[in-house]
Amino acid sequence: MREKILFLVPYLSGHGGTETVLTKVLTSEKIAQSYDCQAFFTAGTDNSEWFSAFSEKITGSQRCGKIAALLRTLQVLRRFQGTKIICLSSKPLYLAWLARRLFSKTYKIYSWIHFSLFDEETVKPKLLKYADYHLAISTGIKQQLERLGVPAEHIFVIYNPIERHQEVVERDPQRLHLGYIGRIELEKQKNLAGMLAALKLLQQPFTMDFYGAGVDFERLQAYLKQHQGDFRGTFNLKGWVTNPWQQLKEMDALLLSSNYEGFPMVILEAISRGVPSISYDCPTGPADIIIDGVNGYLTAMTPAALAEKITLLAQHKDNFTPATLKDSLAKFYVDNYERRFVAALQENES
């Protein structure tokens, strides 16, 4: 008989990398051979489209207030008859621990946090002590957990999965063609202000495509209109696109100037389609994916360093062959990820 696992999921917009990874896990036939996976939204969601294909595995999708969320989560935990609780945010860890004591449960509690532990305001590091084990999506998060005093044998680095893609995004034969895909946020996590400062330093003509929406979309529009003369390039603001990779015809490099990440899926998405990535070496994730000179470049977290690597790639962009880029992601492809995920959960079952 398959073991039952319950994922406790915080509010998700439906458009991010966490949703992509959770979808892969809940729909995986390989994982389903060993585990009966269900997910409960502790605070509901406003977007049910992204899990419509596997809605039978989802409960708690209706939005509710904090008190109602607390009470219904405790009720779900009281009724749960499985062996593992996996929490995608830090706050439910304490509830899972408390319910285990109150209701005499024997399940094991895992954390599975998708952001840098010390940079994302929704992550409360002090609550991580209530987990028995930890699924780390990057080596950086593993190191952060060890700094919090978690024994190394209680941490399992599983990364995040990516599908193998046959298609290849072509290089632009006319000029340097750059792109960004993600939330439009000038400061805070995504730090597009740092990217814009780097683009100002470029000496060659370029095209820069922004795919995404966010609180700063109109600010970005206004800034580019006001400062267009400061750049040697042109900008295309595409807005929110459900699948930008279906629209993209040409891109020489994907850019990321985040102050922090968890494990940036967009880098995997780009490299798996033959597009090298240039990213700040921020906590955490990019350093696990990018191999300098093979599938992109890591840079110091300054606009000058980012501009330097963009220029270097522009001079050698034909050296980044699609086959080499795709091969560099071998350990992240879904089949290898599924084996790693199952192995991590089975490690402490004996």
Rank of each mutant, 00 (worst) to 15 (best):
residue 83 T to A: 12
residue 123 V to H: 02
residue 100 R to C: 14
residue 108 K to M: 07
residue 68 A to Y: 04
residue 188 K to S: 07
residue 103 F to M: 03
residue 179 G to L: 14
residue 130 Y to I: 05
residue 135 L to T: 02
residue 189 Q to V: 05
residue 79 R to H: 12
residue 194 G to R: 15
residue 160 N to T: 04
residue 86 I to P: 02
residue 140 G to A: 13
residue 174 Q to H: 08
residue 77 L to W: 01
residue 123 V to R: 13
residue 169 V to T: 15
residue 97 W to Q: 08
residue 163 E to P: 01
residue 110 Y to N: 10
residue 134 H to P: 03
residue 79 R to P: 00
residue 126 K to M: 13
residue 192 L to S: 02
residue 171 R to K: 15
residue 92 P to Q: 06
residue 72 R to D: 04
residue 79 R to E: 13
residue 185 E to D: 12
residue 144 Q to F: 03
residue 182 G to E: 11
residue 73 T to K: 05
residue 128 L to D: 03
residue 197 A to S: 13
residue 111 S to N: 10
residue 120 E to T: 02
residue 107 Y to T: 03
residue 180 Y to H: 11
residue 158 I to N: 03
residue 146 E to R: 09
residue 197 A to R: 11
residue 65 G to N: 12
residue 102 L to P: 05
residue 89 S to T: 14
residue 161 P to Q: 11
residue 60 G to R: 08
residue 81 Q to M: 07
residue 89 S to C: 08
residue 98 L to E: 07
residue 141 I to A: 03
residue 130 Y to V: 06
residue 88 L to D: 00
residue 75 Q to R: 13
residue 84 K to P: 00
residue 94 Y to G: 03
residue 115 F to H: 03
residue 174 Q to A: 08
residue 197 A to C: 04
residue 113 I to P: 00
residue 88 L to S: 03
residue 187 E to Y: 02
residue 85 I to D: 11
residue 98 L to H: 06
residue 85 I to L: 12
residue 189 Q to A: 14
residue 127 L to M: 07
residue 164 R to P: 00
residue 82 G to N: 11
residue 171 R to S: 00
residue 111 S to M: 10
residue 139 T to D: 02
residue 168 V to I: 15
residue 88 L to F: 03
residue 142 K to W: 04
residue 167 E to N: 15
residue 129 K to D: 05
residue 145 L to A: 04
